[in-house]
Each structure stands twice: as C-alpha cells, then as structure tokens.
C-alpha cells in the first residue's frame, strides 16, 4: 500500500495528503471536527429547523400564517415594543454610567476588590437577583424603609411587579457586565496618548472628547450591542419581578408561552425568529454606524 502510494507520488507529484497539508489540512486540523460537528448539530441545525418549522403553522393555513398572526394580534406584536421600551433605556443607562466610572476606576491601583463585587450579580444570575429584589424593593423592604426614614417619600413606592422592578434587575445584572466590558476597552488605550494631549494643553473634557472617545467608539459600539441583546432577551426577572401579562410581557415570554404552554412549537419558533431578527437589526444598525468613527490603532505610536 505504502509502496504503491510512494510510486505514484513520484509519478504524479505530491499526493492528496501532502497537497492538503500544504493548505493547512492535516491530522491536527482534524481535531476541530468534533467541536464543529457538535456546533452544527446543536446550534446550526436547530436554528435551521426552527426557521423552517416557523413556516409550517400548526393550525394549518399558508406558510406565512404564524407571522401574520403575530403582527395582527396586539397581545403578540406589542411584546416587541414592550421589550424595546425596557432594553434600550436600560442599555443606555448602563452605558452612560459605565463610561465615567470606568474612566475613574482605570486610575485606581487596586481594582480587584471593586471588580470582584461587581462580578457577584453576574455569577449569581437573574433568578437570584429577582428573588432578592422582590424583598428588598418591596413595600416593606429596606429600600422603601430607608427613603421613608429620611422623609423623602411618605408612602412606599411601588417598585415590584411592574416596569421598574424589571428595570432595576436589568441594571443590577446589566451594569456590571457593561462596566467590565467598558473597563477592558478603556484600559486597552495607551495612557501616553492622553499624556501627549495634556502636554499640549488639552483640558480633561477635551482629552476625553477628542482623544479617548474616538478611540473608544468601536469598543463602545460592541459593548452596546452585547448589553442590548442581553437586556432584550430578559426572561426570568420579567416574569418574577414584572407583570408578565401586562407592561413587562416581553417577547421571550410570548415565545416560551407559545412553545411550552400552548405546545405550538411552530409559533414559538416564529416568535424566536422575530426576536432574533429584531436583535440583529439593532446590532447591524449600531455596528454600521461604527464605520462613521475613527478606526485604527489604540496603542502608542512607534511601530
């Protein structure tokens, strides 16, 4: 077998294996195959399956029936507006808080304690935060009690089982996420650039506006996108802390209800596809506007 292969290699030049190796395909490359197959089976295939399934309505009708039903039933199509009404303000608040704080924390020598505290709500997860906030923000909770002790309010504010409960939970879990991402981008910018600007007489605001902000913009766009898609797919806290039949009936609730309460997987998939499309639309819009800003090295000059 080997001898035959060798003989033909002399006659025909490099054999298939050698030609593949020259293009980077050899035994080592094959190591990627298990993970790739896994990803195709459990990620690409379900997505494609769900996409096709969404055009095969359970109740019959033509292929667009699910989508037509979604956009004609206010109980369904209003979930998009409800979700956007939560996700966009929360993401903006998180980002607007994260940027100045990241700029301050970057100067700190020992950031570890703060970053550790901030990583707590992310690792604890939305379910625990929802359970904690139910007590803490409730009418008898410490938050309202403190405000009343200081005389800021005379009656407890209603902060749970409505829009603000979900908003608070998205800030508690979302802000650390946004902040840590922003911090990693801010610390990636060479401080020498700021020092150069300061030497040339730029004020703090000018240094931020004309040196840091343009360099930071691509990173902020990515941060916005990642924070937004997280907030947009809010599920447990919208059920536990909001009013899942009213103002915080978000799109993931509608999708989960259709698929796992009405057992209409076709409709559930259709709503999941719409959810993905809205996310994609916002992400593409944000990333496209990134092209309007500076793109280039964020490290010091010299090579």
């Amino acid at each position: 077998m080997d001898a035959v292969a060798h003989a033909s290699a002399v006659e025909q030049g490099p054999n298939l294996r050698q030609r593949l190796a020259a293009r980077g395909f050899d035994a080592v490359t094959l190591l990627v195959v298990p993970a790739a197959i896994f990803s195709l089976l459990l990620f690409v295939y379900p997505f494609a399956f769900g996409f096709v399934l969404s055009f095969e309505p359970k109740a019959g009708g033509d292929w667009l029936a699910n989508y037509r039903r979604f956009f004609s039933d206010p109980f369904l199509y209003e979930t998009i507006a409800n979700t956007l009404w939560l996700a966009i303000p929360v993401t903006l608040v998180n980002l607007l808080l994260a940027v100045p704080i990241a700029f301050r924390v970057r100067l700190m020598r020992n950031q570890r304690l703060l970053t550790t505290i901030l990583v707590l709500p992310i690792t604890l997860g939305t379910v625990l935060v929802a359970e904690g906030l139910l007590n803490y923000l409730g009418p008898q909770g410490w938050f309202n009690r403190t405000l009343m002790t200081f005389g800021l309010i005379s009656q407890p504010l209603k902060l749970v089982h409505n829009y603000w409960g979900v908003f608070a939970s998205l800030v508690i879990t979302g802000f650390p996420f946004t902040f840590l991402l922003t911090l990693s981008y801010v610390t990636g910018i060479d401080p020498a650039l700021e020092q150069a600007a300061a030497t040339l007489g730029a004020s703090a605001w000018q240094r931020f506006r004309h040196v840091y902000l343009p360099l930071l913009m691509p990173g902020l766009a990515i941060t916005f996108c990642l924070s937004f898609v997280q907030a947009f797919s809010v599920f447990p806290s919208a059920v536990l802390l909001g009013e899942p039949a009213g103002s915080t009936r978000v799109i993931s609730i509608a999708a989960a209800q259709a698929a796992f309460e009405e057992y209409d997987y076709s409709m559930g998939s259709a709503i999941a596809m719409i959810m993905g499309l809205v996310q994609l639309g916002i992400v593409v819009a944000v990333l496209a506007s990134r092209g309007l800003f500076y793109r280039g090295p964020a490290s010091g000059a010299k090579g």
Binding site: V32, A35, F43, Y45, G50, V229, Y265, G268, A272, Q279
Partner: peptide, 25 residues
C-alpha cells in the same frame, strides 16, 4: 468556523434556546 463558534456566545440563550428545545423535544 471561528464565526460559527462566536455566534452562540453573542446570541442570547433565549433566542437559540427555543428552537434548540423544540429539536430536543
């Protein structure tokens, strides 16, 4: 391939979880 591996981290689990659960059911 790298993009294929990046997507499940970028897309929230709720979005791909529903079709995935459908297939698993």
């Amino acid at each position: 391939l790298v993009l294929l591996f990046l997507l499940p981290l970028m897309i929230p689990s709720m979005t791909f979880g529903i079709p995935l659960a459908t297939v698993l059911y």
